[in-house]
Every structure is written in structure tokens, then in C-alpha cells.
Design a protein around this nucleic acid. Structure first.
Lengths: 356, 356
DNA sequence: TTGTAGGCGTTATCAT
DNA sequence: ATGATAACGCCTACAA
């Protein structure tokens, strides 16, 4: 709580000199003054008051990690392994770069806006927002914003997003299943496909669905409309979906791909509870590669993404923007980073012999 | 970015009046001025500059959630389901009460100190710290601090901790196993017991160990020194521990209790990989009640704690301290909240008939 | 090399 | 009921 003024008095110099010492402008200070001031600073554990710095600089050294997930969809969003992992890696990277992390979970973008203004945050990492949300922030703020997993329209510009090869990942998985002899394959995912495709924009789960469809198409295999479906966010309602699939013998599918590991695991538990053996009776795959997939026996075959690296990358990108203010001026710029996925082959896929 | 001064000009009043309106001091403002100012504030989306507020008030409305876990022990600590759950509930409660959350993970207490000073945080919720760490913060800061899961010495005062009935929870579990016919029971936990008991202070896992021991003692059952052991933090090293237990037929144990669900699940996977059937060949129990226990088949029987409620309680306690500055003055005060646990009986415990 | 002064946005005190 | 002013802590010109 000691101030520069007090330090100055103790060291018998002016506040300016202390400030110069603090900022390493050693050429402006005589060697012995330097030593004296440094000693006093040290002895008194001087820490700069960030409030005052904010006022002076109009910046805060705060990076906000905003979780804008729709509340009704995702309560306790931070307990989601994917989100927790992002929070973890972002926190680490932010701190390593000398910034502070403000964590703010709110689906109301206007509230997020207020928070960002009030704290003059230097950058925003935005998770769980749609492009409309991104632009609402973008248009009301001069702060750099990097989104994770937001899908933009083809003609959108003026954004930075750290995305994932959702399409390619799922396609690779389905290709793999086809290679293993599966021809009737289902796809189940959390997102509500029907209300998703307004103005031609993709979304994470929709993109995975497209990968699934294209893999089958390109292999010349037919797809039944029964085979892909959006899962409900309410677990109780989902149980009815699992039930229906079971009662209908999985609509003839020998394999079901899930849009996320959590859904795959939940379904797997349900089917096993009802006497099915995985993968003997049904092949199941997930998406994400969270460690929970390795807790189940058999271990979940899945599409892996390096969440840690994505969080780090988001921070890297935000720092670039912060350090190069000009980058914010070009309204035609768009940076869409597509991180790779890879198949994680474990124990939930059955190889079907040709004779079947 | 609009300031009080600008608002004042637009509304044709003085900054003081605007400030009065903002703070609901309606009695000091005439009704029509009130309306006019409110309208201007609204139209311009006025947001208070927190930096300036910090300077004025000497408070920030920031609550820091500090994760002081030893780095070598716990990398990626936020991905731990328990920690993620605390972060989630604390973030929610902090925001609901009009505060902001700064998330800061650093085992170096002096760095935490700096951060708290720089931001003039109004309160600190401290996770993963030992009592020494707590007091180091406490003695260098006038800020309220509430710890979660820190164990204090009997004579310690001047602290607020949101603890858990670790002892009673594990004891209840072992009693339950005894009731189910088990007499030879093991206990494995992450903490390193040997370096834990300096100056007579308990720790989370040690306390669970004590519960285990006392349950057996009180039932008149013997305990072999082979039966309880601390697990290593390195997973590769732990595999050797699982291996040894397996090779030694679990030292005769029919049941093993684990100090955490994660360890129980990891061990269970290992043993199952080597052909053991749970619970037929071995009974296993965990501690915490994280959802991951329900992902494994058989589902993990465990000691449940309501992590969400603990996070909320920590925030409640910190708010009490913030709102009642006098509470910080009584150096003899100590508040040690012990949250209850309850057994979550699932599928990993085998009932042993009398005839065995 | 060192010191002084004014500004950042808000609040609280004291006048009017 | 409303307004002027100083203070909070730091920074950057500018002055000495």
C-alpha cells in the first residue's frame, strides 16, 4: 500500500526519480540514487496501484475470459472438461505474459460489454458466443477480441477466431469406421440443428455433422434421416432419446458417432446398463479427447483436440493484437485459425469382417 | 467510455449531482433533475471506471480466487474436477453479489500478495494453501481471506476456513464396508503422509486416513502397515504402485478405499485391464463424488461432498467479512466451517456373506 | 540528474 | 438541491 510519493520521501528524492527507477530508465538516474531508491522500494515491498495505472494509461493489463454460453443450455459451464481446460491454459498463459485474468461468465453480451468497459480490459477471449455476440462486442468496443470456436459467415471480416477442424475431424472418424467395415452409421450431437443454420453460418456441432455426412456420401453410402439427430440439453429428456434408439435397434446402425465425449459416455453407460456390450453390440465414438474417455472401460475412441494449445494460441493472438494497435484498424482483416484434430483409437470400435 | 463530467454537461448539472444520482442519493436531487440525469446516463450507456473507483474508495469490488497448489504436484490444476467446480460456483456467487472475479493460480504466496495489493482486492478465497501460506497472506494484508480445505492447528486463531468432514466421511465409508462384511481394508491417497504431520497439523488426506484407521480400530479390527500408503503424484510412478498391489494380491485386502475419486478410477481401470472384476474380485471406494464416478461401469461408490455449496459458502463468508470490517479486528476469532459428507452407494462394493 | 505540475475519473467534504 | 474542490496514485511533459 506504499506509494511512490512515500518511497520518494524515504529515499529523499522526487517521485519522478522513483518512477524512472521503476521503469528502468537508469540513464536518467545517478548510480547511487538508483541504488538507494531500489533499496527503499525493495524494503517496502512496493507494488504499483493498478487503479492509478488504469487511470493514467487507459489500460488495465487485464485480459477477460468471457464465457457467453447460453445459461439455459449450460449451467455450471466451468465444470465442463473442455471449458475447464481452456480456463486453465488461458490463466497460465495470461499470467506468464504479465497480465491478469478476469473470469466472467454471462450469456448477456451487454453485461459483458459493461464489464469490459468498466475495467478497461486490454483484451477479451470469448468462448461460447455466436457471431452476433462477437460483433456486438466488437462494434461497441475498441478492445481486441479473440473468439474460440465461434463460426463466422463466409463474408464476415474483422475478427480473430481460434477454431478447430470440426468438419475434417469427424469426417476422418467416419472414414475410419467405414474402413473398419461399418456402413450404417449414426450421428448424435448436443446442438439443435434445426435452429442453427440461419444465414448460412456453421456451428461447431453442425460442422461435425457435415463431416459425417460427407464421409458417407463420398464413400457412396446412403444416409437415413433416422440416423442423425440433435440431442436435448436436458438429461432427463435425453434418456428418452437413448431409450428410443435402443427400442429401434439403433435404426439398424452398427456404429454411432457422438458430437462430444460427454454425450458418448453418457449414452454408453445407458446402453451398457441395458445389457449391451460395447463395442461388440454397438460401436461408439466421441469427440474432444477429454481424459474422461479413458476412465470408462472400454476406453472411448474419439477425435482428439489439444485444448491446452488452443487456449495458449488464443492468448498469443490476443497479445499480438494488444501489442500492435494498427492490427485493429484494418476492418477487412480476418484471422481464422483452424487447429488440427487427430483420431484417438481406443477400444469402443469393433472391426466388422467382410463376410458380415 | 463516457465520464461523469461529460454526463454532467449533457444533463446540465454538476458532476456531484450525477454522482448522487448514480448512488441512489435521491433525497439530494430534485425529481426532475433525477429523471433528466437518469435519461442521459441511460442514453449514453454510462459505465463507471473501476480504476477511478479504486483510487477513490480504496477498494476494487474484485474478489480474488487464488489457487496456491504446489506446482510440481498439480499442473493444470483447474482441470481437476474438484477445482473446476469450485471455480464455477465461486464465479457465479461473486458475480451475483456484484463483485468481479480475478482468477490467479500461483504457489508463490509472495506473488499472490503482490497481486492482491496491486488490485486492492476486497477479498481473497484461497484454495490449496497450507496454514503457513494463509498466515503469510493474512499478516501482510488487511484484506479478508477465506480458505477452502486448509487445516489449521488447534491453537490457531484469526482465520476463516470452509472445511469438510474428511475424517467423518471416510470413517462412515469404512464402517459401511465393515458392515458389508469386509475386514481387511486398504487406504490409498495422493498426499505424502510422511512429510505432512509437521507441528501436529492435519491435512485433507491425512484426516481421511485417520477416519479410516479409527473406523477399523473401533470395530476391533487389526490394520497392517501394508494396507495404507501414499500415492505418488507422477502417474508413471503410480503405475508401479498399482502393479505392486496387484502382485501382492492387495496384501490380502478385499476392499481398497481411495482418498479421491480420480485415484480410485485410475486404479480401477488398471486392475480391470489386468483382468480383475470390480467389485467381484475387489471392492473399491472413492472420495468426492465427482460426476466422473458415474462414467465408469460399475459406477463408483464414494463419499460425496457438495462442492458447489462449498464454493457458495466461501463467497458468503467473504462477503460477511467485507461488509463487517469489525470482524477483521478480533484477532482471536476463528471460524472453521465443517461441511458434511454423505455416502454415495453405487456399484463398486461387494457384500461379503458371513460364511466367507 | 532531479523536481514540479497537471491530468486521468470518481468520491467525499464543504459551500452555496 | 446543487456545485466547487481536493484527494486518491501514477505518469509524462516540461522546467530547473
Amino acid at each position: 500500500m506504499i506509494t511512490i510519493k512515500e518511497i520518494a520521501k524515504l529515499a529523499d528524492v522526487s517521485p519522478t526519480t522513483v518512477s524512472n527507477v521503476l521503469h528502468g530508465r537508469t540513464k536518467k538516474v545517478s548510480p547511487d540514487t538508483l541504488d538507494r531508491v531500489r533499496k527503499v522500494l525493495d524494503e517496502n515491498n512496493y507494488v504499483s496501484n493498478m487503479g492509478a495505472e488504469m487511470l493514467g494509461h487507459k489500460r488495465s493489463r487485464i485480459i477477460a475470459l468471457i464465457l457467453a454460453y447460453n445459461n439455459s443450455d449450460r449451467k455450471n459451464i466451468i465444470t465442463d472438461p473442455f471449458v475447464a481446460s481452456i480456463v486453465n491454459s488461458v490463466e497460465t498463459a495470461v499470467q506468464q505474459n504479465g497480465f491478469f485474468l478476469m473470469l466472467y461468465s454471462n450469456p448477456n453480451i451487454d453485461e459483458c460489454l459493461k464489464m469490459a468497459k468498466a475495467w478497461m480490459v486490454d483484451g477479451i477471449i470469448l468462448l461460447g458466443a455466436k457471431r452476433q455476440g462477437y460483433y456486438r462486442l466488437r462494434n461497441n468496443l475498441s478492445t481486441p477480441i479473440v473468439s474460440i470456436d465461434t463460426y463466422f459467415a463466409v463474408n464476415d471480416t474483422n475478427y480473430v477466431n481460434v477454431g478447430l477442424d470440426d468438419y475434417g475431424g469427424e469426417k476422418a472418424m467416419v472414414n475410419y469406421l467405414i474402413n473398419e467395415g461399418h456402413t450404417k452409421i449414426g450421428f448424435l450431437s448436443l446442438m439443435q440443428f434445426e435452429r442453427i443454420n440461419e444465414n448460412g453460418v456453421m456451428y461447431v456441432d453442425l460442422s461435425r455433422l457435415e463431416g459425417y455426412k460427407d464421409a458417407l456420401k463420398e464413400a457412396g453410402l446412403p444416409i437415413s434421416a433416422d440416423w442423425y439427430e440433435s440431442l436435448k440439453f436436458n438429461q432427463t429428456v435425453r434418456r428418452k432419446q437413448w431409450h428410443r434408439w435402443r427400442k429401434n435397434d439403433f435404426y439398424g446402425c452398427t456404429a454411432i458417432c457422438f458430437g462430444s465425449d460427454l454425450m458418448a459416455l453418457e449414452a454408453m453407460m445407458y446402453f451398457e446398463d441395458h445389457g449391451y456390450k460395447i463395442p461388440d453390440d454397438l460401436t461408439i465414438t466421441g469427440f474432444d479427447g477429454i481424459f474422461e474417455g479413458d476412465i470408462h472401460k472400454p476406453r472411448l475412441t474419439t477425435v482428439y483436440q489439444d485444448v491446452n494449445e488452443r487456449g495458449c494460441r488464443a492468448v498469443t493472438e490476443i497479445l499480438k493484437l494488444i501489442n500492435d494497435p494498427d492490427s485493429m484498424k484494418d476492418k477487412n482483416r480476418k484471422v481464422n485459425i483452424v487447429m488440427p484434430t487427430r483420431l484417438l483409437l481406443k477400444e469402443t470400435v469393433k472391426k466388422i469382417s467382410e463376410s458380415n
